[in-house]
């Protein structure tokens, strides 16, 4: 059999993660994502989706299994090629907005002067010239995350890992950042792994939505989203989108109920 498989992106095989002493965060997780896919992971809180993302980033260890990206084992090695957009942004408070972006570029190995230049261009493209020299403490939450997204996208990672990046933002900022991310994906065709608990957001952004169940975290189902790649042209209330979201919601509802029962049992 010689079907030509798409080149492998993130590959997770028989992954087990236990937080000592006995909390099973991930149990035999298997996931094969083609290179260049926009994937969302959704599940109730405590289902291990953030743990999975951290393992993919290389900042979390695991007990058993194999995790690789584009054929390269990850094994606890963080790299700019697999960069993370965090919910709490994590800008360096002692660096100005522009310097935060330049930090990412310099970490990738771009010479200082050129990094400054490119960082400047990102700031200008986002229309944030007024804030270029401002420290993070002086910026609003939305602007902060805009800089945070620029910082990650500027170094053009092959895998953009998103840990509920927009859930703390107001509607305006969220929409504009979602579109920034979509355009990056659309133009560069790099892989995106988007963890969220917001079903509408997952369906609106991703080509495929991975549903995870609660403790232990296992992958329950993968839902295709047959919407055009130019997602910014899709209305948020389009019937097709709402149908998929409803389907996912119903499944999630089951999982949430299960998770709650389990938590009561465990006495959390």
């Amino acid at each position: 059999m010689t079907t030509s498989l798409p080149p492998a992106g993130l590959s997770v095989r028989h992954l087990h993660k236990i937080y000592p002493p006995d909390i099973v965060a991930l149990y035999d997780v298997n996931l094969e994502l083609p290179l260049g896919e926009f994937t969302a992971i959704i599940g109730p809180s405590g289902c291990g989706k953030t743990t999975l993302l951290k393992i993919a980033a290389g900042i979390e260890t695991y007990q058993q299994g194999a995790v690789a990206f584009a054929g390269e084992a990850i094994a606890g090695n963080p790299s700019w090629k697999r960069s993370v957009i965090y919910q709490d942004v994590r800008l360096f408070p002692w660096l100005s907005a522009q310097a935060n972006i330049a930090f990412a570029l310099e970490s990738k190995g771009i010479p200082k002067a050129e990094a400054q230049q490119q960082a400047r261009e990102w700031i200008v493209r986002q229309g944030l010239e007024a804030y270029a020299d401002a420290y993070p403490a002086e910026l609003s939450g939305g602007t902060r995350q805009k800089i945070g997204v620029c910082r990650v996208l500027a170094s053009q990672p092959d895998l953009v890992l998103c840990d509920e990046p927009f859930s703390a933002l107001d509607w305006n900022a969220r929409e504009s950042l979602q579109h920034d991310l979509l355009h990056y994906w659309y133009e560069q065709r790099k892989s995106v792994l988007f963890v969220t608990h917001n079903v509408e957001e997952a369906v609106y952004l991703a080509q495929r939505v991975v549903l995870m169940s609660a403790r232990p975290g296992v992958i329950k189902e993968i839902v295709d989203v047959p919407l055009p790649d130019e997602r910014w042209t899709v209305r948020r209330d389009s019937p097709q989108l709402l149908d998929i979201a409803r389907y996912v919601n119903n499944h999630i509802a089951d999982e949430v109920r299960k998770a709650q029962l389990l938590e009561q049992e465990l006495g959390y």
Binding site: G58, I59, K81, S83, R90, F103, A104
Partner: peptide
């Protein structure tokens, strides 16, 4: 630790 992680995932040595 959050800032150290952020720097590491940006590729800082």
């Amino acid at each position: 630790k959050a800032l150290l992680e952020a720097a590491q995932t940006l590729g800082a040595d």
